[in-house]
Design a protein around this nucleic acid. Structure first.
Lengths: 219, 219
DNA sequence: CCGGATCCCCAGGGATACTG
DNA sequence: CAGTATCCCTGGGGATCCGG
């Protein structure tokens, strides 16, 4: 990217990560951990291979990612975030929180992946009852699956299935995520396609961080 | 900007504010308040008029800014942030904090403005001694002037001159900002061009938020 | 099949000039 | 002052091809 040529830390940051796709590459590496080229390409539907290749070189030059040749049995190169790349997490959190308002509309050709189902509760909800026993919620949306583990005041998530969840939420991505982020309540959610099985009372433990939504509602 | 087509709040946010110049326009409006077209153009050295015009239309369509015709005596249109535009402040803060590391090098043709001198202490430092009496620091760098007012646990800033500052810092932008954000100490700063007059002890009251710098140093 | 490199085409950005 | 119009050119999107 052409530099903005401004001695301002925001402009400087955008000089480095302001290019198209760049922050989404960081998002992929942040949520999935070390990735192969093809993993990244699959996780970023729509990106051209040459563009991904070029971005990875730029990010490596900027010391945001590092490439390492995996040990013999795997024999592939893995890309992973450096400490400086990891330090972009607050930026992605702030962007993701602000962008929640645009999740109300879901277009039919939107891509959707399990990681994106997982990071929202991990980043944008807290455990409202830290003293309660641990609990596990299974999420299913558009065939993508993720697990929320609540306990000790923490909300952790991962992709995949849980062995014995206390609660299963299944429905369109917009409904599942809308419920978790506090944009829809559970009665509304079941009316527009959510299937609930297990202990719906657990949902009261997940307290959404509704910073800007609350601000918007105040107007 | 072409949509990423992903049902992910980060991608959605970037669909709206990921275009070149867009976040810097928000930065200008956030720091300067309501602006005229020409104010924005002057505050964004290097932007083309047609591009600014186009971005303002897009931002208005996205309800991040609003245009209002100022009352008769002024007879011009003012652009200002809507509440949703103001909600981008955490994004700019996170970006600006992460970008501080790139302020160590200053290129000779970098543009520099008083607002950028002012926001760094306001966003990235805290008052380490809330019970101490109020104090005023005058900043001067490359002819640009800003004022820091510390008091009651708050660090407020504005551009311009103070009537009777307790401390005056004058030097190259890199040195003044490096000192305020904790990247240089005062003895180092005076060696590379900082002029100090008044009470340098006030600097101990400004505690930099050195989140990522501290993390980088730990390695 | 993985990890790219190459090529072509077009939208979007940059610079300048011009107008109400 | 507040934009619009124009031209040029870079950089992104898409497909294909190639070496390991």
């Amino acid at each position: 990217m052409r530099s903005y040529g401004q001695y301002c830390s925001i402009a400087r940051a955008l000089d480095v990560v302001g290019d198209r796709w760049t922050l989404l590459i960081v998002r992929e590496l942040l949520m999935r951990g070390p990735c192969r080229f093809t993993d990244l390409k699959n996780g970023l539907p729509g990106i051209a291979a040459n563009l991904l290749s070029g971005r990875l070189k730029e990010l490596e030059d900027a010391a945001l990612i590092s490439r390492e040749d995996a040990p013999p049995p795997i024999a592939t190169t893995l890309y992973s975030l450096t400490e400086n790349g990891l330090a972009l997490e607050p930026v992605l959190k702030a962007l993701g929180l602000w962008g929640l308002q645009y999740m109300a509309v879901e277009r039919p050709d939107d891509a959707f992946q399990a990681q994106w189902l997982a990071y929202a509760p991990a980043w944008f909800t807290t455990d409202a009852d830290p003293d309660a026993p641990p609990a596990v919620i299974q999420l299913v949306a558009s065939g993508e699956q993720a697990v929320i583990e609540i306990g000790e005041g923490q909300v952790r998530t991962r992709t995949g299935r849980a062995a014995d969840p206390d609660l299963v939420l299944d429905g369109p991505p917009r409904v599942v995520l809308g419920l978790l982020t506090g944009m829809i309540d559970i009665s509304g959610a079941t009316q527009i396609g959510l299937t609930v099985s297990g202990r719906p009372d657990l949902l009261t433990r997940l307290r959404p961080i509704v910073e800007d939504q609350a601000a918007a509602r105040r107007t």
